Simulated assay, not measured.
Amino acid sequence: MKKIYLIRHCEAEGQPPESKLTVNGLKQALDLSVFFSEMKIDRINSSPYKRAIETIESLAKRLNIEIELDRKLTERILSTKNLPDWLEKLRTTFDNMELEFEGGESSQAATERILEVAEEIFNGEKENTIVVTHGNLMSLLLKYYKNDFGFEDWKNLSNPDVFLLKYENNEVTFERVWK
């Protein structure tokens, strides 16, 4: 059985790639490190965004595992335009996976991107992998495996959040494991 611990980054100062974790986010990262301290982890993949790296740095140092950065794990861009009603527009992209706003990425394209990462891990040698990413991208992967995971589930994610994906007998199941 292969396992992916899919992590949404800890509380951050903002949305740009260079946004750091807040003081509370740094505490959450330490809590994550403790949470994983008794688990066997073989590999850590992360979005190259600063908040994602900072989320997992403490654990990576503790386990002496190099963080592998993967651009496919960056957050999905809804649009390059300022959308005052962005939340409603995001909601529609959970129902219409092909919908694409100016300069943005459709839910379908973003799903394909993170699915490529998951499939590579499930087909690889390592048994237990941590993947650190962002809320929308995480939600789209979970929706792929369970179609009724939607907008409200995304809204109910926490920072951080952790889901365990298990690949066994050519089937993927998942459960939320964060408190």
Results as ranks from 00 to 15, higher is better:
167 Y>K: 05
1 M>C: 13
55 T>H: 04
69 L>N: 05
22 T>W: 02
96 N>S: 02
125 E>D: 01
163 F>N: 11
4 I>Q: 10
104 G>W: 13
135 G>C: 03
26 L>W: 10
134 H>W: 03
16 P>Q: 11
171 E>L: 09
56 I>G: 12
111 T>S: 10
73 L>P: 07
153 D>A: 09
97 M>I: 06
174 F>V: 06
21 L>G: 10
136 N>D: 07
60 A>M: 02
158 S>P: 00
62 R>E: 08
13 E>D: 09
67 I>Y: 01
19 S>W: 05
152 E>C: 12
92 T>E: 03
161 D>Q: 07
47 S>W: 01
128 N>L: 14
94 F>M: 09
95 D>Q: 15
148 D>P: 00
134 H>T: 07
79 S>A: 09
62 R>T: 05
15 Q>K: 07
40 K>G: 10
45 N>I: 02
136 N>R: 02
110 A>V: 13
73 L>R: 02
71 R>H: 06
36 F>C: 00
58 S>Y: 06
124 G>N: 10
110 A>R: 14
107 S>D: 02
170 N>M: 09
130 I>V: 11
44 I>R: 06
42 D>H: 09
25 G>C: 03
54 E>C: 03
39 M>Q: 15
179 K>T: 11
14 G>C: 12
122 F>P: 08
58 S>N: 11
41 I>S: 10
89 K>I: 05
95 D>K: 11
167 Y>Q: 05
126 K>A: 14
56 I>S: 01
65 I>L: 14
67 I>T: 10
42 D>Y: 01
15 Q>A: 13
41 I>C: 00
48 P>W: 07
148 D>Q: 14
145 Y>W: 06
106 S>R: 03
124 G>A: 06
17 P>Y: 02
114 I>T: 07
178 W>Y: 15
133 T>E: 02
9 H>N: 09
37 S>H: 06
136 N>T: 13
91 R>K: 15
33 S>L: 15
91 R>Q: 13
173 T>P: 04
94 F>Y: 08
109 A>H: 12
138 M>K: 09
92 T>G: 00
19 S>C: 02
38 E>G: 11
178 W>M: 15
3 K>I: 00
